[in-house]
């Protein structure tokens, strides 16, 4: 059986909030290393890969592989009943038809308990190869969100160009064009403001801004975001959490015909 206790419900609330507009029905695949999810959006352009490591829970117990088939809209309705600081416990049997969730207020004067019906989801899994990306950019997640939102007001697509002079986000729209260029920032006082660019070769790829703006809903999970880019492969946008857990988004590029 699965028993997983989170010190603060907000971790799961934020994760589900960040992905629920991209994917609807998906399996939480549980084993002794944690809770994983992989799901594509309906158009098969974007993929969500979540890993909540056992280390992010206290305690975490899951002695065999358990698939928890969830509708994220339904899960959101239940999670809305949890306060951010509540202690959240997930419980499920080995072949579950429901997921048990309890929310305990931190001063223990209130315990809420919900059982959520599960679904049988036959999910297609894609193999994601280990990739040495040509460019890896680490930046404040709020900055990335601002760039995507600003450019989306002008255009459907953004071209991300990483070179030795920095990283440039450029768009062309009906009303004109725009670009934002970022250079390396080293803020010793506050490392969260750093912009780091690791480059092995210059890259330039075009992506749909609609999806990137959607990924930015994960902004609350982490103060920094990492973009991994190589020519001719999907972009990886990664939000790292405590305990080695992460939320990753992959986005297929737009390719010239």
């Amino acid at each position: 059986m699965l028993e997983a206790r989170l010190e603060q419900a907000q971790l799961l609330k934020k994760v589900v909030d960040a992905i629920k507009d991209l994917v609807q029905d998906c399996n939480f695949d549980c084993n002794d290393s944690g809770i994983a999810l992989q799901a594509m959006d309906n158009s098969h352009v974007a993929l969500v890969s979540m890993m909540l490591k056992a280390e992010s829970f206290n305690p975490f117990r899951c002695d065999r592989n358990i698939a928890i088939g969830l509708n994220l809209v339904s899960l959101t309705k239940v999670l809305r009943a949890a306060q951010n600081e509540d202690i959240l416990t997930l419980k499920a049997e080995d072949a579950p038809d429901s997921l048990n969730l309890t929310f305990e207020s931190s001063d223990k004067d209130r315990i809420s308990e919900y059982d959520l019906k599960l679904m049988d989801i036959d999910q297609e899994h894609l193999g994601i190869p280990d990739t040495d990306y040509s460019a890896t950019i680490s930046m404040p997640s709020a900055e990335f969100k601002r760039i995507c939102t600003d450019l989306m007001a002008m255009s459907e697509s953004v071209t991300i160009e990483a070179g030795k002079d920095g990283i440039k986000f450029a768009c062309n729209g009906d009303i004109g064009n725009g670009s934002i260029t970022l250079r390396t920032v080293q803020d010793v006082e506050n490392k969260e403001n750093n912009i780091e660019i690791a480059l092995t070769e210059p890259v330039s790829l075009t992506f749909s801004l609609k999806y990137l703006v959607n990924f930015c809903k994960a902004q609350n999970l982490s103060k920094t975001v990492k973009l991994h880019i190589s020519n001719e492969v999907p972009l990886l946008v990664e939000y790292a959490m405590e305990g080695g857990s992460y939320l990753r988004f992959y986005l297929a590029p737009k390719i010239g015909d």
């Binding site: 158009s43 352009v45 737009k254």
Partner: peptide, 14 residues
């Protein structure tokens, strides 16, 4: 203009 690629063009089903 650019065409939106799908993920299956890069990642194979397992």
């Amino acid at each position: 203009s650019n065409q939106q690629a799908r993920l299956e063009g890069f990642f194979k089903p397992v």
